[in-house]
Simulated scan of single mutants.
Amino acid sequence: MEISGIISAIVIGIIIGVLGRLVVPGRQRIGILLTILVGIVAALIGSALAAAFGVADTDGPDWIEWLIQIGLAALGVSALDRTRARR
Rank of each mutant, 00 (worst) to 15 (best):
V11T: 08
A43R: 02
E65A: 12
I7L: 15
F53I: 05
T83Q: 15
I70E: 01
L72P: 01
V24A: 04
I68S: 06
L67I: 10
R84G: 10
I30D: 06
A48W: 02
M1G: 14
W63T: 11
G46F: 06
V55P: 01
Q28D: 11
I10P: 03
I16C: 04
A9S: 15
I45L: 14
L34M: 11
L67D: 08
L19T: 05
D59K: 15
V77E: 02
V38T: 12
I40S: 06
S47I: 04
S8E: 10
R27G: 08
I12D: 06
W63V: 13
I15K: 03
G71V: 01
I36M: 12
I70P: 00
V11E: 04
D62M: 07
I10S: 07
G13E: 09
I3C: 13
R29C: 13
A42E: 00
V55M: 06
I30R: 11
A42C: 03
P25W: 04
S8I: 12
R21P: 01
A48M: 11
A50W: 00
A9H: 12
V77D: 00
A42Y: 01
T58V: 15
G31V: 08
I6W: 09
I12N: 07
P61R: 10
V24G: 01
G76C: 03
S8K: 14
R82F: 06
I36S: 05
I45H: 01
I6S: 09
A43Q: 05
L80P: 11
S8N: 13
A43L: 05
A51L: 06
S4V: 09
S4K: 09
R21T: 05
R84C: 10
D57Q: 12
A73Q: 01
R84Q: 14
G54S: 04
T83G: 10
R27I: 10
S4Q: 12
A9N: 14
V41H: 00
R27V: 11
A79D: 07
I70N: 02
V55I: 13
L72H: 00
I15Y: 03
L22C: 08
G13V: 03
A74M: 04
I36G: 03
A74E: 01
G5M: 12
Q69C: 11
L67K: 07
V55H: 04
I40D: 03
V77G: 01
A9Q: 14
L44E: 01
G71S: 06
P61M: 09
V38G: 03
I16G: 01
A85Q: 15
L75N: 05
G13H: 04
I16W: 02
V41M: 05
E2T: 09
